[in-house]
């Protein structure tokens, strides 16, 4: 309401016309229009703070160590059977900065989504085929043969150290869930999600990524690709 009154000085005439200056000659439709306009502006201003309330942090930033392209090459029988692990495929560094006036509600979540580029016709549960070799068994590899593990020194993620897999395009794994109570930096415990940086708290704000693929013998040979999209997001 205070915002509404603060806004009034910019539009003094309509209010004056409607309630305090009946002597002025204006068409009646204009009075109604200004009233509607004022109500509209009031609603706009009241709704705006609701959106602005989601902003508790000054900046959230996710930085991989390098542009990451992980290549798994299977050319030995034992690799097919035992699988291949690429350790430290990526190091994800989180940097959360506070507002100029710190907001104690500043917290964040980190998740990963799997994308197999369905626009190219890839079935939901399969890898995107780039180039097939030979005839194969008639089956392209499924997404669940890929396993992902995140870890850091403080084991802040509930998934820390556990290989997790995906089933379909768009599946999401929460590394740090959203809507959790704020756990401040320096706690070195599960779900640290407050303001902090990999520079000052590397054990909590750095995530190492390991990938494992175990193809087995049922899939077509060829070259395939998927993308893991890591999403760092301020909690509302």
């Amino acid at each position: 309401m205070a915002l509404l009154f603060a806004f009034l000085p910019f539009f003094p005439v309509p209010f004056c016309t409607r309630f305090y200056c009946p002597a002025l000659v204006e068409p009646s439709w204009m009075n109604r229009s200004f009233t509607i306009l004022m109500l509209y502006l009031a609603m706009s201003w009241f709704s705006a703070p609701a959106l602005k309330a989601q902003l508790h942090c000054g900046n959230v930033e996710l930085t991989p160590n390098t542009p990451v392209q992980a290549l798994f090459s299977f050319d030995e029988f034992r690799d097919y059977q035992g699988g291949l692990i690429l350790s430290n495929v990526a190091t994800l560094r989180v940097n959360i900065q506070d507002l100029a006036i710190p907001d104690p509600q500043c917290s964040w979540s980190l998740s990963v989504l799997i994308d197999n580029n369905p626009s190219s016709g890839t079935p939901a549960a399969e890898w995107e085929e780039l180039s097939p070799y030979g005839f194969g068994a008639g089956n392209n590899p499924t997404l669940d043969i890929l396993e992902m593990r995140v870890r850091n020194n403080c084991q802040t993620s509930p998934l820390n150290g556990t290989f997790m897999s995906f089933t379909n395009h768009g599946d999401i794994l929460d590394i740090i869930e959203s809507a959790l109570p704020v756990t401040p930096a320096g706690s070195c415990t599960t779900n640290v999600n407050g303001v902090g940086s990999y520079l000052t708290n590397p054990g909590e704000y750095t995530f190492n990524l390991d990938l494992r693929i175990t193809p087995g013998f049922v899939f077509d040979p060829g070259i395939y690709m998927i993308t893991l999209r890591f999403n760092l997001e301020e909690n509302p």
């Binding site: 902003l55 299977f74 993308t227 999403n231 760092l232 997001e233 301020e234």
Partner: peptide, 27 residues
């Protein structure tokens, strides 16, 4: 008024991608 009211600050988000390529050679 619409332009003035609607551009409220959105949630802060950052995204980074890891591309995984798998080369299954027939053995």
């Amino acid at each position: 008024a619409t332009l003035f009211a609607l551009p409220a600050s959105a949630q802060l988000i950052d995204e980074k991608d890891v591309t995984v390529t798998m080369d299954l050679q027939p053995v």
